[in-house]
């Protein structure tokens, strides 16, 4: 029966060929306030795709246009709030981020393109959110921020925005980054939930197709925290958790080992794309 059915599927795909032709990422280029943004680039060695594509190329023209001028980008409000936090003294040491790091435009430039990176203290990869918490608890005498609370997303957006336009490039040679990359790859290809889908089902196998109203992108992370027109500022682990929930699986905790491994691996999958934070998506 299998063979017979496969023949049927081939017939069917001939029919499907006459379907919507819109299913390609657009041929368009992005400049933000005149700065060129890499939204399409050759994939690194060992990548499943030949080309790495920003999610921006999969969005409607109106959504794409909102990202071209920072003045139009509603995510910039969060970046401004993050800047205020950067300069706000908190904790028992009487310090702000700026007390140690001065002008973020200089000291944080490039940081958003290199994280997550190896943290020798915890012997794990660390992302911007966890680095903020590390500085708060170890340098400022302030409490760690809970996931998505207390301005965590805004401050992360501000820090990553300092790398706008810079290509993402991880150093996987530090510490055990390579084994976390492997672990993240496992998570990426593991089917979860009642719908039995992996990240790769939607963002690799079905990339470029429509799932209901959504044009499936490569699921790149270069624009996070991102501004979603329908729900506002969205952090990366919130997006991961949402995609996993949609498979009808239990959601892993934010910053859990599984999601840190996933962040490491998926960030690598976007090697060479410009940081777009705060990107604008549907």
């Amino acid at each position: 029966m299998k063979r017979l059915l496969v023949a049927g599927v081939m017939v069917a795909s001939v029919f499907a060929g006459s379907g919507p032709v819109l299913a390609e990422p657009v041929d368009d280029t992005l400049e933000i306030d005149g700065m060129p943004i890499i939204t399409r680039t050759k994939a690194p060695e060992g990548h499943p795709f030949d080309e790495v594509l920003s999610g921006w190329l999969f969005r409607e023209a109106e959504t794409r246009d909102v990202e071209r001028e920072t003045i139009e980008n509603p995510g910039m409000i969060a970046v401004e709030d993050g800047e205020t936090m950067w300069n706000t003294v908190e904790g028992t040491e009487g310090k702000s981020c700026a007390s140690c790091h001065n002008d973020a435009a200089e000291t944080m430039k490039g940081v958003g393109a290199r994280f997550p990176k190896w943290d020798a203290d915890s012997k794990k990869p660390i992302n911007i959110e966890l680095q903020i918490n590390k500085c708060r608890t170890e340098q400022m005498g302030a409490e760690a921020l809970a996931f998505n609370k207390g301005g965590q997303q805004e401050l992360t957006a501000y820090i990553k925005h300092q790398s706008l336009g810079m290509p993402v490039e991880l150093d996987l040679t530090e510490g055990d980054m390579q084994s976390w990359w492997e672990k993240g790859k496992d998570v990426y290809y593991t089917r979860t939930g009642q719908l039995n889908l992996a990240c790769a089902s939607c963002h690799e196998t079905a990339m470029g197709k429509f799932i209901r109203a959504d044009h499936l992108s490569q699921g790149q992370v270069n624009g996070f925290p991102t501004y979603r027109l329908k729900s506002g500022l969205t952090s990366l682990h919130q997006r991961f958790r949402g995609c996993i929930r949609d498979t009808r699986a239990e959601q892993p905790k934010a910053f859990s080992d599984d999601l840190m491994a996933l962040e490491t691996y998926v960030t690598w999958r976007g090697t060479g794309l410009s940081v777009e934070t705060p990107s604008v998506r549907q």
Binding site: T192, G193, Q194, A249, E250
Partner: peptide, 13 residues
């Protein structure tokens, strides 16, 4: 025959 980490609400369903 479903995926890993099935959400509790869907176990056996």
């Amino acid at each position: 025959d479903v995926g890993e980490h099935l959400a509790e609400a869907f176990v056996g369903k």
